[in-house]
Amino acid sequence: MRERSLAIRSFTDLANPTRFVALAGRLLPWLASLTVLLFAIGLTLCFTTAADYQQGETVRIMYIHVPAAWLAMMGYTVMAASALGTLVWRHPLADVAAKCAAPIGAGFTALALVTGSLWGKPMWGTWWVWDARLTSFFILFLMYLGLIALNRAMDDAGRAAKVAAVLILVGFVNIPIIKFSVDWWNTLHQPASVLRLGGSAIDPEFRRPLLVMALAFTCLFFTLHLAAMRTEIWRRRIAAMRRQAARGAASA
């Protein structure tokens, strides 16, 4: 391989899958080590900081729950941006990015739901409340699962990508409406909820581990996303080679 030609000089060079694979191969070890390092620092901070005088030890759940929730939303934003890339610029890597972000985003959404539930049990006394935030997240989870199911149901990757992109974008436009409607619904059904967590600003004591953990989870997301994209490119390459081989065999 000529090393020079593989250098990424501009954003458009990223459109070349071969260059992307080479770049991903070079970046991945660094990103993975950074992720491990950040998690090491973050987890140490998580367990060494003082417990909250009100919530006790359960405040430590927040260090996982909140970053997971952020990443669940960021995952969908990444998908929406990629969907725009697919539909508007027909960027060849955009549909790969959208497809690979879905399982990872769904994983983080599930994590946010599970930890939220585990947080809710000792704090609110119940595993699940139809709280506005929880409900919107549950709907987000359903949307992720629907998109994964759609990707799995279609054979032709290119066509699946465009159709999924439409759905992702409509879902993205819909998220504020869903959020708004669920808020409305929630205030209607449980006025003056005492179950809400105190909306006060987070104490700096808790902010530091939270931020480090958020960074660690973000790094983890991008590491996984990059690796999954590389695999997806390989998968398509394999399919193309198989077709090629079949065609060659047929014409020979």
Partner: peptide
Amino acid sequence: YVAASYGA
């Protein structure tokens, strides 16, 4: 609960 969420 904390252990369970970290486990999850």
